[in-house]
């Protein structure tokens, strides 16, 4: 009945059975905190993000951090080898993670990573796409929807012109990229459910 933590933001999927759930959570929190801080530093550099109200900056980050991390760490999911690399650098096979309780979310993460890497985005395009993911006016709790919407539109326009410049099949690439947004929402929902189940457990 041993517990596992099948999240690559953790050092290892193996949980020490002698540790209390509080200790396990504290350790996990320590391991993902640097990545969350990096997302905040990234957000601060998005032109116009710091002009939003403090409340809306926090709301966007609270709602979107997971999705940004999925994009940034998509390469941890090796579609070819069917492995996931954890923070320790150690790789675990899909089969091993499945035997530890990983389910539908794992499959969906692989599917997403595969589709994203197929678009062959440059670092600049990936960065702009990540900004679009974060600045979404339809997140819950936004107080000034118009400001967030205006910033999001600017970012989408910039992303579009960048894609148009760099890709031969630009319209298809841009459409496929925008279709990743609902995919990320769906992953976010699945992840929230798993986290909640973990906390309850």
């Amino acid at each position: 009945n041993r517990m596992h933590l099948v999240c690559p933001m953790s050092v290892s999927p193996y949980v020490d059975p002698c540790k209390s759930s509080h200790e396990i959570w504290e350790e996990f929190s320590m391991s993902f905190t640097p990545a969350v801080r990096e997302v905040v530093e990234f957000a601060k550099k998005i032109p116009g993000f710091r002009d939003l109200s403090q409340h809306d900056q926090v709301s966007l980050l609270k709602a979107g951090t997971f999705e940004v991390l999925v994009v940034r760490f998509a390469s941890l999911f090796d579609v070819k080898d069917r492995t996931v690399t954890f923070l320790s650098g150690k790789k675990y096979s899909v089969e091993a993670l499945r035997s530890m309780g990983a389910g539908e979310l794992l499959n969906s993460m692989f599917e997403f990573s595969e589709k994203l890497s197929a678009l062959q985005l440059s670092e600049e395009e990936m960065s702009l796409f990540t900004a679009v993911v974060l600045v979404s006016a339809d997140r819950s709790g936004i107080e000034n929807v118009n400001s967030v919407e205006a910033l999001q539109e600017n970012l989408i326009r910039a992303l579009r012109s960048l894609i148009m410049k760099n890709h031969s099949n630009e319209a298809a690439t841009f459409t496929k990229l925008l279709l990743k947004l609902p995919d990320l929402r769906s992953l976010n929902n699945m992840h929230s459910e798993e986290l909640l189940a973990f906390k309850v457990h």
Binding site: V36, V40, V58, A63, T65, G141, N189
Partner: peptide, 27 residues
């Protein structure tokens, strides 16, 4: 989702990183 984030301590990490609080700088 936001409610989950609050429960997970994410909001605290985000606020500290956004504000660059003195506590954060000491770390």
């Amino acid at each position: 989702l936001s409610e989950h984030a609050s429960n997970l301590g994410l909001e605290d990490i985000i606020r500290k990183a956004l504000m660059g609080s003195s506590e954060e700088r000491q770390e």
